[in-house]
């Protein structure tokens, strides 16, 4: 069981759903949903830089299609802290997109640990839990 998980998604229903599934599988002690990607990013940066007491989440579920700050923008903003995040925080893209181009782009981005399609399936959650 993980200690801390972030869910970053502008869709409230999606966050609700992900939380419900994670809860059902006893995935993590703390599950934190962010409707606003900017807040989530600030939170992460503070932890990565050590300017906050809060520990980094071990897993992040990141949506791609968000207004003002997309999942890709989010990853780009994190890229300077890749070394600090490595081994401590895994980022999974969780998107409703069925666009093959985005899957390819994800494969080429080193910060991305995996590309998951909504809705989140039990099977994936089991696998992720095992690699805890």
């Amino acid at each position: 069981m993980y200690n801390k998980v972030f869910i970053v998604d502008d869709d409230e229903v999606s966050i609700f759903l992900t939380e419900a599934i994670l809860e059902a599988e006893s995935f993590a002690t703390e599950c934190k949903g962010f409707l606003d990607a900017k807040t989530a990013l600030q939170n992460l940066l503070d932890s990565a830089k050590g300017s906050s007491e809060d520990a980094l989440p071990e897993v992040i579920f990141l949506d791609l299609n968000m207004p003002f700050l997309s999942g890709w923008d989010f990853l780009e903003a994190l890229s300077p802290y890749e070394q600090a995040l490595k081994g401590r925080c895994r980022i999974y893209l969780l998107t409703s997109s069925v666009d093959e181009q985005e899957r390819t782009r994800a494969a080429g981005t080193s910060l991305v640990a995996g590309f998951l399609q909504k809705p989140l399936e039990d099977e994936w959650i089991m696998q992720l839990k095992e690699s805890c």
Binding site: V13, L17, T18, S96, D99, K118, P119
Partner: peptide, 25 residues
């Protein structure tokens, strides 16, 4: 339209699917 289908159309579908699965449980 690719964009619309892959994001805007797919998003509520994904949600509906997830919610339907959840209801069963």
């Amino acid at each position: 339209f690719t964009y619309i289908i892959s994001h805007n159309l797919r998003a509520p579908v994904a949600n509906a699917l997830g919610l339907a699965q959840l209801i069963n449980k």
